[in-house]
């Protein structure tokens, strides 16, 4: 047999990943789709019940709040993580501050924490009766105690903040690495041409790392 070297090698080396992806991602998705047309108690054989599950879904009073919460969560998460990651990476790259290594490590530490630890931490911060925020307000004599986790909008934003805080460091490091690869000469040329810091940020720092 004559192998077309590059094609067969490509196929064979990609095959394990495709198999993993298929088993872990694709197969459950497809199976889940077909199961959505059945009623199943988890033990006995599934019984086909047509679109009944979808009818229940679309008539459920929880559907639109769920969609709203998902959108709020995603928008907050993305804005916070990418926004602050970009800002902090820019500062670390372009501003001459001391203890840069410390700050890089400090921002990355939350990424290493387990989800359980972060959840317990923020429950202690957000707890309506004994949480850090409300207790601080009480200590300052402010009559401003919030039910952080029990109100519809506040709750989802509070949870989104916890996840944002945890994951921001990861994005910051990636953006930092990309910013570091932008040649300094571009900034020097921009400064010579009279570009302000903001203009350098908008015209060099943001677009060029995207191409790296």
């Amino acid at each position: 047999m004559v192998f077309k070297r590059s094609r067969w090698a490509q196929v064979l080396f990609v095959l394990p990943v495709i198999i993993i992806y298929g088993i872990i991602i694709v197969f459950p998705l497809v199976q889940g789709f077909f199961m959505s047309f059945t009623v199943w108690d988890g033990v006995n054989a599934a019984q086909f019940n047509g679109l009944a599950n979808y009818q229940k879904l679309f008539s459920s009073p929880d559907l639109w709040p769920s969609i709203r919460n998902s959108i709020l969560y995603s928008v907050f998460l993305t804005t916070y993580q990418i926004g602050f990651a970009t800002l902090f990476a820019f500062i670390l790259v372009n501003v001459d501050i001391r203890m840069k290594r410390f700050f890089k490590a400090a921002y990355f530490v939350p990424v290493l924490l387990s989800v359980t630890v972060v959840a317990q931490l923020f429950v202690s911060i957000y707890h309506g009766d004994f949480g850090l925020i409300n207790k601080f307000a009480e200590a300052m004599g402010w009559d401003w105690r919030q039910n952080w986790l029990a109100e519809p909008i506040k709750g989802i934003l509070a949870i989104a903040f916890a996840e944002s805080w945890k994951g921001m460091g990861y994005h910051m490091l990636i953006i930092y690495a990309a910013m570091r690869n932008v040649p300094r000469s571009y900034y020097e040329a921009a400064r010579i041409d009279g570009a302000s810091t903001f203009q350098q940020f908008r015209c060099i720092t943001i677009p060029l790392p995207k191409t790296n």
């Binding site: 429950v123 957000y126 707890h127 309506g128 009766d129 004994f130 949480g131 409300n134 105690r145 919030q146 039910n147 986790l149 029990a150």
Partner: peptide, 8 residues
């Protein structure tokens, strides 16, 4: 119930 009842 306390404000933090649902995270208790």
């Amino acid at each position: 119930v306390g404000k933090g009842a649902f995270s208790t």
